[in-house]
Design a binder for these strands. Structure first.
Length: 783
DNA sequence: AGCTGTGGCAGGGAGG
DNA sequence: CCTCCCTGCCAC
């Protein structure tokens, strides 16, 4: 074996330990090729990857691979005599991943990252898809063959117990984007036959994409479990293979979703549930993430849509199976519309990334940006950096200067604050030797601008839809660049730069505050990139307000533009990130967890909503009446349903992790977990991460320990209500306390108390507001 | 092992 | 009582 050229070796890592790097393989028919490069004999590290994408794994001894029986190994000579390629040939994806796990187990791979990874070959054919089709730029989203799938299960809460016979799948409904529909059910066939038929139908229809709502966490694992139970091979791959799964997770803002990712050979999975959540990260407008909620929100529900409550499925199946079949079919019809609406941008994103469509649909934005960077580094044959250790310190600037009812209100925000800062203040990770970060960001920004401009000049609705999907995909990428800098696992992270972006954002916001004040406006509240303020007396009315914002924008540094993002009659300013806005159309918009949190009981949310409206209308008598009415309802147990006062919580851990944390003193006991575990004792259904537990508080005094005084919502009987009235009266008091700052203590007590000894009169009660003293705002804008 | 961040409010439990 | 800490949910 010849020794590599030392001048090239200098490019490589300085790590003295012998290592190997493996990367994601390129599918070549049913064979996967993984190419690893051996290190040189003289002790210098060399890393070579022919089919590069993401350097996950490193091993300390190439010999380890020889212990793995299901792979073949060979050496090939490359680049004259200088380099050797070490080739692993495996027969299937699962063998590949098994090999990787084998390597991982035998080494402590996490701690042994080389400083740099040098990659030699040309980039992969990015658009080669596992479907056997190619995603050339000319191909449109509509050319995909998409199949939607949904299952109905007899037992209403069956999933974790899928082994029990009563948990059988009773209906499989399917549609596709070519007008085909299909219903399979167990009225005239066994469940086993149904599953076998399902596999046949999928193979016959041969779709590129399988879509479903929450299909990753429910339909697929459930189908797999039932197939295993009956000994049916769930062979839906294009090569007749069964799906391969591995644990994965995805984060949507604060919400972490754990799921078993699934790869079906030759096909892609798109879970509309994920798409809905990622849509909501930006919009924050959805009533819920369930299929029905979202379909109503988008107006996708069929006109004569059938609804069946989850708890009653078994009953409806007995009494009126046709109705349940229609319901199941409506589900997939909605799924198709939802996917058509939301997954176009994912599709066009795939054309830009060295990733498969299904992979793009289930990975977060950070890995996508990194894929773009890595691909170009590979193409330029440049070494890749290693991620650095540390953490970001700074975030956005938030403040509230005025609380109370105030108006009129204008909302102005900096357009694309962080991307604009990164472009105009030369932000780039220190490790980005090729300056790709700013170049890519600029290019994507230009592309998005072009797409948006083209949309305005084009008549065809179809083409406009495609352009919109494209510009959305650019936007998603652009917005992820900043996150990349502060992400500890990203190869191109740079915490100092992330802080510089945040600090610049803070300064820009302070500058805006100063400009508005100098012009005679009153700042109410600011958050990161936007300002809510009362425009100066001289600038009232929509046109004048627009002009005012335009003038503000002119006072900003180059490349930083302020947009007019809304105007409102009035505002109730409560706390930072917590306020309500009254539009000129009379609608109310609520912001902030203390006003709208879904963790609050429904009666409390309704109380707060109504009270805020009354407050904005300065209807003191109305407030008092609302308080009395709500109080009476609690005292009389006058609930429409248990959901009016129950609380729903999502388990963040499974029972074992929870108990371990409790034992370690890391957390306290919580009602939701205790109830889930109690239920597990009774039904054998384990408490799983992600379970939604709905419960209410029992007992007789207001200060009860909730985890010892709680029942599952299902246990509540309207004929023998046992909810804790004293506790819920206390909750009502907690909701009223939000309005304390807006009245004198005396007035507040009058309004929110039942003691009408002398009758209640709103006379003389006025709202009070609070203006914080205006401090000097430092203004050190780097112009 | 395929995972964007900080800032902020509120409630519950535990312990002083 | 109060404070501290953790968790959940939300804004951007």
């Amino acid at each position: 074996m010849a020794v590599p050229n030392p001048s090239d070796i200098a490019l490589f890592g300085k790590d003295p330990m012998p290592r190997l790097v493996s990367v994601q393989p390129l599918l070549n028919g049913s064979q996967a090729e993984v190419c690893l490069y051996q290190r040189s004999e003289d002790g210098q590290a060399i890393y070579r990857i022919t089919e590069p994408f993401y350097p996950f794994f490193f091993l300390s001894d190439i010999e380890l691979l020889r212990d793995f029986p299901r792979a073949q190994f060979q050496f090939q000579q490359l680049d004259g005599a200088n380099y050797y390629r070490f080739l692993i040939v495996v027969q299937s994806w699962s063998d590949y991943w098994d090999a990787i796990r084998h390597i991982e187990r035998a080494t402590d791979s996490r701690e042994k990252r080389p400083d740099e990874v040098y990659l030699i070959n040309n980039p992969p054919q990015q658009y080669l898809m596992q479907t056997g089709r190619t995603l050339f730029k000319e191909m449109g989203f509509e050319d995909l063959h998409r199949l939607q799938l949904d299952i109905e299960v007899a037992a209403s809460r069956g999933f974790p117990n899928a082994e029990r016979p009563e948990d059988a799948i009773i209906i499989v409904s399917m549609t596709d984007n070519r007008g085909w529909e299909c219903l399979l059910d167990t009225r005239h066939r066994s469940e086993k036959d149904l599953l076998e038929e399902l596999v046949r139908v999928i193979q016959t229809r041969d779709p590129d994409v399988i879509e479903g709502h929450n299909i990753y966490q429910f339909d697929f694992p459930y189908l797999q479990t039932r197939c295993d139970l009956h000994g049916v091979a769930f062979a839906i791959g294009r090569d007749g293979s069964v799906p391969r799964s591995f644990p994965s997770s995805m984060r949507f803002a604060e919400r972490m979703v754990d799921f078993d990712a699934l790869e079906i050979h030759g096909r892609h999975i798109v879970d509309t549930y994920f798409q809905v959540m990622s849509y909501d990260v930006f919009k924050r407008d959805l009533p819920g993430y369930g299929l029905k909620d979202v379909s109503k929100y988008f107006g996708f529900a069929p006109e004569d849509r059938e609804y069946v409550d989850g708890d009653t499925i078994a009953q409806v199946w007995q009494d009126d199976p046709e109705r349940l079949l229609k319901y199941a079919l409506d589900d997939v019809v909605e799924t198709e519309r939802l996917a058509r609406h939301l997954s176009g941008s994912t599709f066009y994103l795939t054309q830009m990334l060295p990733m498969l469509y299904g992979q793009v649909a289930r990975t977060g934005p950070a890995s996508k940006i990194e894929a773009l960077l890595v691909r170009e580094y590979l193409r330029q044959r440049h070494s890749l950096p290693r991620s650095t250790w540390g953490s970001q310190v700074l975030g956005g600037y938030t403040d509230v200067f005025y609380t109370g009812v105030v108006g009129p209100i204008v909302y102005a925000d900096v357009e694309s604050l962080y991307p604009s800062i990164m472009l105009n203040y030369n932000v780039k990770p220190q490790s980005d030797a090729l300056d790709l970060f700013p170049t890519l960001l600029q290019r994507l920004t230009d592309l998005r601008f072009e797409a948006k401009r083209a949309m305005k000049t084009i008549d065809s609705a179809d083409l406009r839809g495609e352009l919109d999907a494209r510009q959305t995909s650019y936007k998603n990428l652009i917005n992820s660049f900043y996150g990349q800098l502060g992400f500890s696992l990203a190869l191109f992270n740079d915490f100092a730069e992330a802080d510089r972006v945040a600090a610049t954002g803070q300064q820009l916001l302070r500058h805006i505050i100063k400009l508005i004040r100098e012009a005679g406006g009153t700042i109410i509240e600011v958050d990161t990139d936007g300002v809510l303020f009362v425009p100066p007396e001289t600038n009232r009315g929509e046109a004048a307000e627009q002009a005012f914002v335009k003038q503000l924008s002119a006072g900003m540094p180059n490349g930083i533009r302020i947009g007019f993002d809304g105007r409102f009659q009035k505002m109730l300013s409560y706390k930072k990130k917590n306020y309500a806005l009254l539009t000129y159309g009379g609608a109310l918009k609520f912001k902030g967890s203390s006003l709208v949190s879904r963790s609050n009981e429904r009666f409390g949310r309704r109380f707060v909503r109504k009270a805020v409206r009354l407050l904005l209308e300065e209807d003191i008598q109305g407030l008092h009446d609302l308080y009395l009415a709500t109080r009476d309802r609690i005292l009389a147990h006058r609930w429409e349903e248990v959901a009016d006062f129950s609380r729903t919580e999502t388990l963040k851990d499974n029972a074992e992790a929870y108990l371990a944390d409790v034992a370690a003193g890391k957390r306290t006991r919580a009602a939701s977990y205790e109830l889930a575990m109690a239920r597990a004792q009774e039904t054998g259904q384990p408490a799983r991460k992600g379970d939604r537990i709905t419960y209410y508080i029992t007992g007789s005094t207001a200060n009860v320990t909730s985890f010892e005084n709680c029942h599952l919502a299902d246990a509540w009987d309207p004929n023998a209500p046992d909810e804790n009235t004293a506790y819920y009266l206390k909750r009502l008091d907690e909701f009223t306390r939000k309005f304390e700052p807006f009245f004198t203590e005396h007035d507040f007590r009058l309004i929110f108390s039942p003691e009408d000894l002398f009758g209640f009169s709103p006379a003389g009660i006025t709202l009070i507001s609070n203006m914080r003293a205006v401090e000097d705002v430092e203004d050190e804008i780097p112009f």
